[in-house]
């Protein structure tokens, strides 16, 4: 149920990528790079008789957040599932490389915001898309090494699947909503390959329990859990205190964090089992409570997850 107080605010889930950018940045501050009028489009979709998009579903540029310059990239999840492809991927990689190169110059940015909304690699351009993901990861890590945080904002229709989930895991911070989902292999693909007894993709509650924002936040797979309105995303993007450096100490801390997770929960079969082991009150009810109650409960766990 949508709480009364946000029922009339613009929803991130329902918004287009362009509307999300406008909602996150200071009003009127966004400058798009290689915008739709440049007509830099996928040359490969015609082979499959599919319509292209003027921006190939990737909008990149720079703008201001509280007056501080930031770089921003947003995937349009409604076009081809927000997929990584030759052009869409290269726009993102170009932005990240430029952001890393700008560190220490007058052109530098205070953060890179990645508004992920993606089913992963675009299969019509599978090889270019897979490489774009790998190049994106390397470029994200170079931006972080240059001392600039990269913040992933996830709450769109397409979630962050496939290569998109790996990109998210390489960011300094991951911000998620209840509707946001992160997973490497999508539930439908697991069901197709391994059968409905392994993962019944039509069981929506199960899909959300496994991949959704609440489970990810409780387990440490996301740093911030927020309500699904655009204003909450803007507030989360503004809060960039102490992002983890990409260095050996962070990686060692993450190694310990992920090893412990396997030790503690590796034999669990469903998320309520994990939550029970975390000593959360009423684990079966976690999916049912509203966002305010969940955010309170998450805070009560002490929920700070170092490493990333």
């Amino acid at each position: 149920m949508i709480p009364q107080d946000i029922a009339h605010e613009p929803s991130w889930y329902e918004s287009s990528a362009r509307a999300r950018i406008d909602g996150v940045l200071d009003p009127g501050s966004f400058t798009e790079l290689l915008g739709p009028q440049c007509r830099i489009m996928s040359p490969h979709l015609a082979l499959f008789d599919l319509p292209p998009a003027f921006d190939d579903g990737m909008i990149v540029g720079r703008g201001l957040l509280d007056g501080h310059p930031v770089a921003v990239a947003a995937q349009e999840g409604q076009f081809m599932g927000g997929t990584f492809a030759e052009v869409s991927g290269a726009k993102l990689v170009g932005l990240l490389r430029a952001a890393a190169a700008s560190a220490g110059t007058s052109q530098t940015v205070s953060a890179v915001l990645l508004l992920l909304d993606t089913g992963g690699v675009r299969l019509q351009e599978a090889n270019a898309g897979e490489l774009a993901v790998s190049e994106t990861i390397r470029a994200v890590l170079a931006v972080r090494q240059a001392g600039i945080p990269v913040i992933a904002l996830i709450g769109g229709r397409a979630g962050a699947f496939g290569g998109g989930s790996l990109v998210a895991s390489c960011c300094s911070r991951i911000v998620m909503t209840e509707q946001g989902r992160i997973s490497v292999t999508g539930p439908e693909v697991i069901e197709t390959n391994k059968g409905a007894e392994e993962f019944d993709s039509r069981d929506r509650a199960l899909v959300w329990r496994v991949t959704g924002g609440r489970s990810r936040a409780l387990l440490g797979g996301a740093d911030r859990y927020i309500r699904g309105d655009v204003a909450s995303f803007r507030a989360a993007a503004r809060d960039r205190a102490n992002p983890p450096a990409f260095d050996i100490d962070t990686m060692r801390a993450e190694q310990v964090r992920l090893e412990k997770r396997l030790e503690r929960y590796g034999d669990c079969h469903d998320t309520p089992e994990i939550w029970a082991r975390m000593n959360l009150p009423d684990p079966a009810g976690i999916s049912e409570i509203d966002d305010a109650a969940f955010i309170e409960r998450l805070a009560a766990t002490g929920g700070a997850h170092d490493a990333r």
Binding site: V184, P187, V189, N193, F199, R216, G220, D270
Partner: peptide
């Protein structure tokens, strides 16, 4: 490709 692995992140 298992539900368990995805659940564990």
């Amino acid at each position: 490709m298992t539900r368990r692995d995805e659940m564990l992140g």
